[in-house]
């Protein structure tokens, strides 16, 4: 199994006391499969995605990527997995502002020790005219394409996308999702995407709806 989540619980401390965000969640993602994670605001979708990426650790439960339990792994091991096995796409794009589009595109792949041709990638994503620009000089859709390109260049086994089209108009969002799905299916990567959009969720292989921290 590419991603296996078992009985994961996550609680946050708030001013009103502990708040359970995820309450015994379990799910699986196979290689080449795409899964949409939907639910209302605050139901824990993004938290679950962050836990799957090893950005945060659950209070209880197991999260395995290719058999490695990242919930109990050390910080350095989780960082290695993010570098080599996982690709992240965020709603806010989160490009590195000090690097040009070309360097942003190749950054993750080079961190993972993988060679990449930025020109070919840019051509595929329609970013060729912008290769030497800075992220802030691009539109939202262009920035998100760079973020997806950065992830695809690293050739991850698992792509985790958090509302990747949330800041984009419908047409641009569709194009971005299409690119992401194409790349995932070409490389046989698993795709877990958090989205509010029922329309986009329907375009995935499977969908999982969260309500109040539990699978509905």
């Amino acid at each position: 199994m590419l991603l296996s989540v078992r009985d994961v619980v996550k609680t946050y401390s708030t001013a009103d006391g502990p708040q359970v965000v995820l309450d015994g969640i379990s799910l699986d993602v196979k290689a080449g499969e795409s899964l949409a994670l939907t639910g209302e605001s605050g139901c824990g979708k993004s938290t679950l995605l962050h836990l799957c990426a090893g950005l945060d650790t659950p209070d209880r439960g197991r999260i395995e990527i290719e058999g490695t339990d990242i919930a109990s792994a050390a910080d350095a091991e989780r960082a290695r997995l993010r570098r080599e096995a996982v690709g992240l796409v965020f709603q806010q794009f989160n490009l590195i502002p000090s690097l040009t589009v070309r360097d942003n595109l190749t950054f993750h792949a080079r961190l993972a020790g993988r060679g990449v041709d930025p020109a070919t990638l840019a051509d595929r994503l329609g970013l060729t005219p912008f290769l030497d620009r800075w992220p802030e000089q691009l539109s939202g859709g262009q920035q998100q394409r760079v973020a997806i390109g950065r992830t695809l260049a690293a050739r991850p086994r698992l792509i985790l996308a958090d509302e990747p089209t949330g800041n984009l108009d419908e047409a641009t969002g569709d194009a971005v999702l299409e690119t992401m799905q194409e790349a995932a299916s070409e490389s046989g990567a698993g795709l877990l995407m958090v989205t509010h959009s029922e329309r986009l969720a329907r375009r995935m292989d499977r969908r999982l709806h969260l309500r109040a921290g539990q699978v509905a």
């Binding site: 990426a53 950005l55 910080d75 350095a76 960082a79 290695r80 997995l81 993010r82 570098r83 080599e84 992240l88 965020f90 989160n94 490009l95 590195i96 502002p97 000090s98 950054f107 993750h108 961190l111 993972a112």
Partner: peptide, 15 residues
Amino acid sequence: VPQVAPLWALGLTRA
């Protein structure tokens, strides 16, 4: 923090 967080997300440790 917003500038270094993506680096951390891409696999560099905080240390």
